[in-house]
Each structure stands twice: as structure tokens, then as C-alpha cells.
């Protein structure tokens, strides 16, 4: 139906797409360790060895776990399966709160103790006015 040239051009584009997709898939697959922005406490638990490199951990700040000592902030990051104790001193973002998401950058002392050098708040995909939030909580 179509000329030979049209078919050739089609397959040219088609193969470029297939080959590039495949190579990008393989690259991302092999670099998965680095593509993830942070590790969850469970992933830290199954880590084979604790090294001295700077890493990021993330999860929820456990309810009633924030403890403010002199110039030091202690809290527990949980993914509801495992927990990590975090100690930090420095600036905290506005959205940092108990029961909310957090990403901490720093060094792992052992599998359940983390010394953070920087804290980022991770917020969820829910957006609503305060009145609606209140109404939801009363329910």
C-alpha cells in the first residue's frame, strides 16, 4: 500500500524508539540504587553493611516521638514496619510535624540510629481547605 521509502522511514523511527527505550530501561534498572531519593527504614534494616557514606532516609515521623533537647532534636522515622531513631540539630522546615512525611540526609551510625545533617519535609498529595480537614477529623 505504502511505498518502500515510507516503510523504511517507519522502521527507522521505530527501531530508534525500541533501542533507546531498552537502553534507558537497562540503565535505570542498574542505577536503581541511585535513582531512589531516599531509603525506607525497612530497606535500611536489610542493608548488608553500614558504611560511612552520606545517605537519605525517609518515612513518617512517628506520633509523639519528637523530643526537643538542648539544641538537639530527636524523633523516630517509621514506615509502619520498622523504625529508625534520628538525631538532628539545625533548621527545620515548616511542614515538619508528627504523623507527616520526612526525608533526612546524614549518616547512619547503626541500623537503628541516624545522625541527620539536613531535614526535608515530604508532603502528601492531599490538598483541602482547613474546614474540610476539620470536618473529616470530626467524623
Amino acid at each position: 500500500m505504502y511505498g518502500r521509502k515510507v516503510k523504511l522511514r517507519f522502521f527507522f523511527v521505530f527501531f530508534i524508539l525500541i533501542i533507546l527505550s531498552l537502553s534507558i530501561f537497562l540503565i535505570l534498572k542498574s542505577l536503581e540504587e541511585n535513582v531512589v531519593y531516599f531509603k525506607s527504614p525497612t530497606e535500611i534494616k536489610i542493608l548488608s553493611e553500614v558504611n560511612k557514606n552520606k545517605i537519605r532516609i525517609g518515612g513518617m515521623v512517628k506520633e509523639n516521638s519528637i523530643l526537643i533537647e538542648e539544641k538537639k532534636l530527636r524523633f523516630i522515622v517509621t514506615d509502619f514496619k520498622n523504625e529508625i531513631n534520628v538525631v538532628y540539630s539545625g533548621v527545620i522546615p515548616n511542614l515538619f510535624a508528627e504523623g507527616k512525611g520526612v526525608v533526612a540526609e546524614g549518616f547512619l551510625k547503626d541500623r537503628s540510629f541516624f545522625s541527620a545533617t539536613k531535614i526535608l519535609a515530604k508532603h502528601d498529595e492531599n490538598y483541602m481547605p482547613p474546614e474540610v480537614k476539620k470536618a473529616l477529623e470530626e467524623k
Binding site: 535513582v35 531512589v36 531519593y37 533548621v91 527545620i92 522546615p93 515548616n94 511542614l95 515538619f96 526525608v103 539536613k118 531535614i119 526535608l120 519535609a121 515530604k122 508532603h123
Partner: peptide
């Protein structure tokens, strides 16, 4: 900056 606490993050 006001929500996460950073201007930039090298996340995916």
C-alpha cells in the same frame, strides 16, 4: 523552599 525546605533536590 517553603514546603520541603530546599530549592532543589535531585530526585527522579
Amino acid at each position: 523552599k517553603p514546603t520541603w525546605g530546599t530549592w532543589w533536590a535531585w530526585d527522579a
